[in-house]
Nucleic acid binder design. Structure first.
Length: 425
RNA sequence: GGAGAGAUGGCAGAGCGGCUGAAUGCGGUGGUUUUGAAAACCAUUGUACUGCAAGGUACCGGGGGUUCGAAUCCCUCUCUCUCCGCCA
């Protein structure tokens, strides 16, 4: 959620920022509603003060044995008026909040302005595309051939968008998870969390999935809980409502979780194989940090994701998303896309974003800049480190051999316990 | 899932429907004393919104109600603890 005080101070800045995201917002109407809320607030509060004073006087009078019947009636009326004014205030305020929750985070000034993914900017490329002296296969051919991913029985169990990893396929997935976690925890100082996969609507609102994107979530209606679409939700909300000390920052958390996404409306688009699943695994990085350093921290976090790819020897590029393609809560996003030789496409394996105080305001995540000082909102960052299915794709397709086997990259071998995946291994 | 008990400030723990934003203790901060420390003593010590200010309003798990007036009474939800059942 954006800061109302800032909106009052500089409405044009917000109108422009939303315009860059392709959103035309009547900021004046918003401000009018805001001042209406504040007018009702002062009015109801002074009425309430009057009523409180009247009640107090009655207490005193009763003690002195004076007649209080008339005063009582007067106080009752005051109380009713105050109640009514406060109800009006509450209605208007909810209306305002509902609207505010629907507006995205303004992008940082330096984010390239653009309409959609075609306007994203490639900021860097690492490595080069693997070369083959045979026609490389796509993972959807390679993996079933090796009997390590079972597409058919996955769909049979749960419908399209679900697969079964089998044998060394399951192990490869797990090896990648362990490699990611171990590197992040032991080298880059992340604290690993094991978090709930079902969360409350409040948590979903804290990170911005609700109220706007509920149709992308799996919901357990009997219990009013949602399946997480990413570990970002429980991890960012882990310390919601708390006030942290400056020395504790930055906090770096990582968590491995399955992720659940309905992908409503995305059916049929690039859905072959395991690039887009209703359920997939992901290791996530989340930072809580101070506003002064958050932009720098974003680059640091991105470099951690890059390191993971580099050690796997996977060719990738970095995209800076344009204003039109940046996610709802994010103020700047870098996507890491890994090269998939079998499909001849770039696959997004990590999305590293800075949310400024947008999520922190919703989740009430604050810190005290120094002892005794007033609490400030933290800045939150998150990035994938990394998404599993697409990492699996890149490893399989990049390291495939002419005979249909797959060589295991060196860094993964300790986690795999073998050097290759072949038909009869 | 069944039965019972509970939820109060950083923590512990009081709190007859009005004088309770809340006793008391611990902790924190400042000071006195001391060569220094400890101890002792004194003072101070929640958050948010609103106002130039004085001040005002809200908050005793959440929501609703009764009342002129609710931490205190009623309803409801959530969570915690104990016992029983079930269970990886």
């Amino acid at each position: 959620m954006i800061d109302l005080t800032q909106l009052r101070a500089d409405p044009k800045r917000f109108a422009d920022a939303w315009q860059c995201r392709g959103l035309s917002v009547d900021v004046d109407a918003l401000l009018a509603l805001d001042s209406e809320v504040r007018r009702l607030k002062t009015e109801s509060e002074s009425k309430r003060a009057e009523a409180n004073a009247a009640s107090k006087a009655i207490g005193k009078a009763a003690k002195e044995g004076r007649d209080i019947n008339e005063a009582r009636e007067h106080a009752r009326l005051l109380g009713e008026e105050a109640k009514q004014l406060d109800a009006d205030r509450s209605d208007k305020e909810n209306e305002l909040t509902d609207q505010l929750l629907g507006f995205p985070n303004p992008c940082l000034e330096s984010v390239p302005v653009g309409k959609d993914e075609n306007d994203n900017r490639v900021v860097d490329t690492w490595g080069s595309a693997a070369e083959f002296d045979f026609a490389p296969q796509a993972h959807w051919d390679l993996a079933p051939e090796l009997d390590i991913i079972d597409f058919e029985r996955g769909s049979q169990l749960s419908g399209s968008g679900f697969v079964v990893y089998k044998g060394l396929g399951a192990r490869l997935n797990r090896a990648l998870i362990n490699y990611f976690l171990q590197t992040l925890v032991e080298e880059f100082n992340y604290t690993e969390l094991g978090v709930p996969l079902l969360v409350s609507p409040e948590a979903m609102q804290g990170t911005g999935q609700l109220p706007k994107f509920g149709d992308q979530l799996y919901k357990c209606t009997d219990d009013d809980l949602y399946l997480i679409p990413t570990a970002e939700v429980p991890v960012t909300n882990y310390l919601a409502g708390e006030i942290l000390e400056a020395e504790q920052l930055p906090m770096q958390f990582t968590a491995y979780t399955p992720c659940f996404r309905r992908e409503a409306g995305a059916a049929g688009v690039g859905t072959r194989g395991i690039t887009r699943m209703h359920q997939f695994d992901k290791v996530e990085m989340v930072w809580l940090t101070q506003p002064e350093r958050s932009e720098q921290d974003l680059l640091t976090m991105r470099s951690h994701a890059e390191t993971l790819l580099q050690r796997l020897g996977l060719h990738y590029r970095i995209l800076e998303l344009c204003t039109g393609d940046t996610g709802f809560s994010s103020a700047r996003t870098y996507d890491l896309e890994v090269w998939s030789p079998g499909t001849g496409t770039w696959l997004e394996v990590s999305s590293c974003s800075i949310f400024t105080d947008f999520q922190a305001r919703r989740a009430k995540l604050r810190y005290r800049p120094e002892a005794g000082a007033k609490p400030n909102l933290v800045h939150t960052l998150n990035g994938s480190g990394l998404a599993l299915p697409r990492s699996v794709i890149a490893v399989l397709e990049t390291y495939q051999q002419a005979d249909g086997s797959v060589r295991i990259p060196d860094v993964l071998q300790p986690f795999m316990g073998c050097e290759q995946i072949s038909k009869h291994s």
